[in-house]
Design a protein around this nucleic acid. Sequence first.
DNA 1: GAGCCGCTGAAAATAGCTTTCATCGTGTGA
DNA 2: TCACACGATGAAAGCTATTTTCAGCGGCTC
Lengths: 323, 323
Amino acid sequence: MTYSLKETFPQGVRALRGAPGTPSGSATTPDPGALAAKVRTLAPSMTRSMQRVAEALAGDPAGCAHLTVTALAVRTGTSEATVVRTARLLGYPGYRDLRLALAALAAQQATGAPPAVTADIAVDDPLGDVVTKLALEEQQTLADTAAQLDMTQLEAAVGALAGARRIDVYGIGASGLVAQDLAQKLLRIGLIAHAHSDPHLAVTNAVQLRAGDVAVAVTHSGSTHDVVEPLRAAFDRGATTLAITGRPDGTVTQYADLVLTTSCSRESELRPAAMSSRTSQLLVVDCLFIGVAQRTYDEAAPALSASYEALAHRHAPRRRDGD
Amino acid sequence: MTYSLKETFPQGVRALRGAPGTPSGSATTPDPGALAAKVRTLAPSMTRSMQRVAEALAGDPAGCAHLTVTALAVRTGTSEATVVRTARLLGYPGYRDLRLALAALAAQQATGAPPAVTADIAVDDPLGDVVTKLALEEQQTLADTAAQLDMTQLEAAVGALAGARRIDVYGIGASGLVAQDLAQKLLRIGLIAHAHSDPHLAVTNAVQLRAGDVAVAVTHSGSTHDVVEPLRAAFDRGATTLAITGRPDGTVTQYADLVLTTSCSRESELRPAAMSSRTSQLLVVDCLFIGVAQRTYDEAAPALSASYEALAHRHAPRRRDGD
DNA sequence: GAGCCGCTGAAAATAGCTTTCATCGTGTGA
DNA sequence: TCACACGATGAAAGCTATTTTCAGCGGCTC
């Protein structure tokens, strides 16, 4: 099987440093649950006709599984080419494989409990409903994120971080907090990590990096200039660069050796995507943290306890546990 | 689709009246579970090579789902024709459809027996397990938090924030990020909110508060001195004080008019409670935010859009969405 | 031991999937 | 405002995978 994929990845450049994005189809069944999430994640980067196809897929996976490329093209009022393009964007080598995943998904849905659909949070929802809906949405986001996380990239990212001489993390706004969270955690296990939210300082720091260092960019949009620039600087200096983004097609991935994609829950007016992406980002951060802690256990464990001890007296009478 | 079926049903007549044995392809999922049984039932009526194929199918449905006719023929040491014949005998119009059913079956099997048990994350867990376990744990935390949240207190807190002249949020370390998150969100909907992580500045600010202002303390331990002090100062000055804490018996609640309790998931060595409390805290913060946004919708909505507009140009070429 | 029957796989035929390419619409810069 | 460039799109060519055909071969019967 030799799929050329020419049309899908025409950029070419990235390939030199190992193109990210492909969901490393190695696993026997790459969890079909990821499909719905992927559709949502990638929808913004789709063209109109591709969105029509994606919509049909998400709407009736079981039905679509029975259709040939041509049939699906007709049903969605598009062409075979578009259907195949959509399949590629969703991470499958071609329509054939998408169809298999679709069948699997349909089976899972049929087996699994009824979806328990969460309606959008409305302006006049009573507070009790808000809590419930929010919790469910976030739970969904977590499941989606876990399902579509590229384990190969994650492994590589953990490896890079664990062996890094120095780690810089860039993030602005809400993503800035996630960046800080990552840096804080890594510091606690004895790594040299810093989060930068000031764009100028970030770039200033980035140009100090070199091979063996790691730079991490956290951005939901994938194109936040103030975050892309530092990463680019680090990339140019030869540091290993990692992007944690909700948009695998964003500009940030051009300068990222490794990409970890976050998925966003349904957005609503009161709760825009940028705000709900946090959950997903934090899960990724935690995975990175635990991964690194495992790899460097001998140094991480004492470092972790040490930081508790250090903070213990900061708490009033009662028991110790760091905040 | 025009399958001639000549070899399998050479009688010709039956086809006209709807051949039996065909799993009535109309149904969305023709029950893939039946496959194993069918193999057993039909095995006696199979030729030797067909049995070899059927055996392979029953033995490793997931694996076979990935194979083309040719590949399966090779694996079973038979020919394409035999594979197709087997598929027909099993009741599918052709190999293509058998393959779909196979994928569905594999998915069902995978879903049916998921370990589900959230054992502690161990040092030697493979990364894939870590991701799954983490996601499950966090989901559990969210459910727990939502379940035990005191709606009366939440209502009251939302009311206080919505009508506040000025809002101060105190938090240190990991909780400091949550504090910042709350402040950022409230700022976006036009409230005057600030997060303080510097204990001295926090106290300095706290003593400026008075009735009509709101002070929020975020602390997992409930007794972080650097957070309790500012809240106490605010409390003494007559401001409305809110504590978001995991320990409703902590010292912080002594100076809190309102208390929102967060719940923490099981802690493990690699993932101490302080670190996992974040999820719960953030859910509470989001509930507060949405609650306030609902109450002040007329001002909140435009303020929210305004902040997107303001940030839009910060993103490189592609479509807008704030970080 | 010879003839018949039907299983079997090689290869031809076809259906379905993938790629290419020309066209069209849209947004951009002069 | 117009010309230009670029990306999206579908028609059709090209190719792969599936299906069908058909000749050969082995076993079974007489």
